[in-house]
Every structure is written in structure tokens, then in C-alpha cells.
Design a protein around this nucleic acid. Structure first.
Lengths: 194, 194
DNA sequence: GTCTATAATCAGATAGAC
DNA sequence: GTCTATCTGATTATAGAC
């Protein structure tokens, strides 16, 4: 049942959890190790450095999230209206962040503290994600469903910031992930005013 | 012309700039000192520790930003329609972030890495800011200008996250702060769809 | 009030036993 | 593959001269 890297995977999950919860500077290797059931030096059997470990978490988080969103959009079929595609993407993103993918949440939390060199490589992985959103937004404008008077880059930045923030303030037991996703769609597409 | 704490003020400004630009973990005391025209140990004549210096930057940033927003809203007079008040607040916030107040930008950048004890105190200062936005939003709902079907807390979190993000991606020479503010108002109040 | 040492701390990383 | 022990390096912080 276990592949050759069970403990490697456990370490990555522990790291993702700690990074999402406490950020980069406040997570020590010993915290990650403890959560993975071992001591800090053992991590070096699986990863060359803290940076490499963090980088893998980031890239994995971006990859998982992108793939999840794409699936939930593409299942609608190639002829789905662009607003339906946008709605599916927003809902998928919130869902994924709030329903326990620590990797995806860690990305937003840690990205801006990454050392320059690491950040460049992570940025490359991020571009797939970013481009997908750009296409959804530009597509919605081209189809006439969204306003061309709005700058698509600004819309994307605002939207992603808004969605990403949710993993920082979401508390289970209050509004559900579904309800938050619904409000995000409403707000982004139709606004708060009556 | 110079009060008793000119260099103290210079240090705070240097710290705000470094914190907004590089985040907490990546700003060293020596960076702050250099920007203030002195060497790291000299900072200890003015501040007890890095934490205390950072805390003062945070509290000052929150205070300045809150005061700026309140002024720009209250100048409309007590009978201004609630949408005008919201619009003024959004515009003021973006303006303040993008037109060079490093203290305000540093808050969003650094807040989540603060050591627990510091963060608690900063959070107390933050509540004035937060409550003001809450009142603007709830007021707009009560007046009927904004939809009661939306959760006011979620709207506030989404709005502030969206606005705060701008200091991270704004680049002078592209869209102006005014234009970004306009798009933020449009998006938040009327949405992106046609 | 700012400097030149220098100490203290702490976290990342390595060596080598088991 | 994980441990104990140790090293290294970076950064905060202190002592004390000027």
C-alpha cells in the first residue's frame, strides 16, 4: 500500500499545514518534523533544505488548485456560457481553500515572503494558474457577459485577493464554504448595491 | 523645526518602507538603520527591540489610515447617502495605500507574521478601523442601498482584502490610483457582469 | 546619539552512530 | 530512515568608548 515515499508525503503535508497556519518565518523545521512524527534532522533525508521543502509545497499547492479549478470548469463542456464558467471557477477555488487543502492555502499565505530565487521558480508554476483566470475573465468580456470598461488585470487581482483571503478568516461552524462561495460569485458578478 | 525625535521619526519611516517592501522576516535591523542613515545598534537608543519598532509602525499605520478614511467620509456631511460614503471610503483607502503611505501598506504586508503577543495589541488598534467599515457596510444595507441578502462580515473581509492587495501589484505608470479606485468602487457596488 | 566591538540566541544544516 | 550531538551562520541585542 505504501509507496517508497510515505514519510516524504507526510512531511509535505505537515509543512503545508504549518505554512498555511503560521506563515513562513514562524514555522520552524522542528515544527514540521514534530507534526510529521520525527525530529528535525530527519527531514534532510528527504529534502535538501527548508527552501526546497517550501518550494515543493508551493508548487504542489498551485498545481493542485489549478487542476481542481480547471476540472470543475471544463466539466461544463466547451460551449458553456462564460458566466457559468466564471461561477464554477470561483466556487471551485473557495471550495478547495476552505475544504481543507492546506497546500493551496499555504501558497497565498507564504508567497510574498519567499526568498527571491525560490519565488522566481514558484512564479513560473503560478503563471499557468494566472493565465487560466485571465482567459476566463477576458473570455467573459469578449462574450459580452462582462463589462469591457473594467480592466481585466485589475479584476483578476481583485478577485483572487478576495478569494484567497477567505482561508484566513473562515471559521467552520459559521457560514459554510458553499455559502461563502455563493456570496463571492454574487459580489464579483453583480455587486453589493441593490 | 525639528522636534526632539527627528531621528526617531526617520527610523519609523525607514522601517515602514522596508516592512511594506520586503515583509517582516526579510527586513533586518541593519536595513532599517541604513535607510535611516545610521548603524543597527543605534536603533536601540530609540526603541527597545525590533518588535517594539514594528509594533509602532503597525499601530501608526492603522491610525493614519483610519483617520484618513474617516475624514474623507465625514467631510460629506452627516446626511450623505450611504453609497456615497462607501465610495468615498473605498477611494480614500486605495488612494492612501497607493499614494505612498508606507505605514498603511506595511500593515497588510506584515500583520500575519507578527509574534502572537504583538499581534494581540495591534489587533486592538485594528478594531477601530474594522468597526468603521462595518458601520459603513451595515449602514448601506439598512438604508436599502445595499443588499441584505449578503453577509456584512463577508462583504467587509472581501472588500478589505481586495483593496489591500492593490499595494502589492500596483505599478506607477500603468493605471493610476484614481482609476484603480474607480474600478474598485464599480466592482464592489455593481459587479463585473453586464 | 551614534559608534565599535562583542555577546547571546536561535534556527538551519551536517556528521556519524544505530 | 531516524536518531543524538554538534557546527555554522545570520541577526538581534548589549557594553562601553566617543
Amino acid at each position: 500500500m505504501n509507496g517508497p515515499d510515505t514519510s516524504r508525503a507526510r512531511i509535505l503535508e505537515a509543512a503545508a499545514y504549518m505554512l498555511k497556519t503560521r506563515g513562513l518565518a514562524r514555522t520552524k523545521l522542528s515544527d514540521i518534523a514534530e507534526r510529521a512524527g520525527m525530529l528535525a534532522p530527519s527531514l534532510y533525508h528527504h529534502f535538501r533544505s527548508k527552501n526546497q521543502l517550501v518550494e515543493e509545497v508551493m508548487v504542489e499547492g498551485i498545481y493542485r488548485n489549478t487542476r481542481h479549478i480547471m476540472q470543475r470548469v471544463e466539466v461544463l463542456g466547451p460551449d458553456a456560457p462564460s458566466l457559468a464558467r466564471l461561477t464554477a471557477a470561483i466556487t471551485a477555488h473557495i471550495d478547495f481553500l476552505l475544504t481543507g487543502d492546506d497546500f493551496a492555502s499555504a501558497v497565498g499565505q507564504v508567497f510574498h515572503d519567499l526568498p527571491d530565487e525560490t519565488r522566481h521558480r514558484v512564479l513560473a508554476a503560478y503563471s499557468t494558474f494566472d493565465n487560466y483566470w485571465r482567459d476566463l475573465i477576458v473570455g467573459a468580456q469578449r462574450s459580452g457577459a462582462c463589462r469591457s470598461s473594467m480592466d481585466p488585470t485589475v479584476m483578476r487581482k481583485f478577485l483572487i485577493a478576495m478569494l484567497d483571503s477567505s482561508s484566513g478568516w473562515f471559521r467552520p461552524g459559521k457560514l459554510s464554504a458553499q455559502e461563502i462561495a455563493r456570496q463571492a460569485c454574487e459580489l464579483f458578478l453583480h455587486g453589493f448595491a441593490t
